[in-house]
Amino acid sequence: MARRPEHQAPPEIFYNEEEARKYTQNSRIIEIQGQMTERCIELLLLPEDSPCLLLDIGCGSGLSGTVLEENGHMWIGMDISRAMLDVAVERETEGDLVLADMGEGVPFRAGCFDGAVSVSAIQWLFNADKKSHNPIKRLNKFFTTLFAALSRSARAVFQFYPENETQLELLTAQAMKAGFYGGVVIDYPNSAKAKKFFLVLMTGGSAPLPQALGTEETDNGLQVKYAKREATRGARGKPLKNSRTWIMEKKERRRKQGKDTKPDTKYTGRKRSGRF
């Protein structure tokens, strides 16, 4: 495996102009970041059909933000790399951008955001890139100020690449200390390739952690281990997104809310042929 980027240079140096461009043009990266952002949104459990204001932490060049937009949300992104943010400006993302170091704290006023996402960024907080950097202090500053910036009942979901178990424990412990509930959800824990870590943090009191994907016949010991509040009631019973059942249920809800809704036909939820 390639050397971890965090071991090579501080983030604002690693993500220089050249890397920012390479990163943002790579179709494989675009696809993966997109998929992981979709999963983060799913784990955020936002109010159905409502456009929300989200914070994207370590937003980079806006690959994650683009997916937030596609889901109808407005976002404000913060990142430590000027070069990454410059590429986001070039790409004309709809989100607004702030150059800031999450380890110095989240510079927003109390209760602003309906939720926060962070895709492939918080593992950087374990770096001590300057003499004055103390990772635990920076994690603590980050989580306490993030907690304050979220509206009550809002969640924060982080996809990240932990280096070892100690990091997992440290992250969870610091988040709980800041007042969050929640823990780590591990999707596809038995697949070397598809395995993904999501730190799911809740502000509004204890609630079950969402079910990890790809754990049907396997034990999710790890997941439970890091969940501070008991978990397991899952997304079971909820139909697959964009399936016919899902669409019909959504339409039914809209009708009940008195919203304008197209009638159901035999074409509802069918795959379209060709391009529209």
């Binding site: 204001l53 607004d96 110095e104 510079p107 927003f108 602003c112 500053k141």
Partner: peptide, 14 residues
Amino acid sequence: MKLITHNMLTSKCL
């Protein structure tokens, strides 16, 4: 910087 961002932004990290 949009004014929505300005409305939320602080210098409290100083």
